[in-house]
Amino acid sequence: MALTTEEVNKIAYLARLGIDEQDVDSYAKELSGILNLVEQMSSVNTEQVTPMAHPMDQVQRLRVDEVTEGDQRALFQAQAPDVEAGLYLVPKVID
């Protein structure tokens, strides 16, 4: 399984991940290598196997419906790159 540079660019865009133009080739090569490594999975017959999403066969625990969190805006927004009037600012969102 080999990934083309075009595919790498497409995935990088899906992941909104900037990659230097000159690195795309090496990413394509490395990612293809990883895909080759995982390729051996395809030879295993898993028709009867239930996928395992969690190590423990446990059930979701539920939280009581109570308000436990107060306003911590000032604390949280101290970490923000750009805020105004309590809002996080970003380049214009176009619908």
Binding site: D65, V67, E69
Partner: peptide, 23 residues
């Protein structure tokens, strides 16, 4: 509900921006 689906922040409508957004 009183609180959010995955957190204990209030769901009340009309609060000051981001005052009901917990971690």
């Amino acid at each position: 509900t009183k609180s959010k689906i995955f957190s204990g922040a209030s769901t009340a409508y009309g609060a000051e921006p981001n005052t009901q957004a917990c971690a």
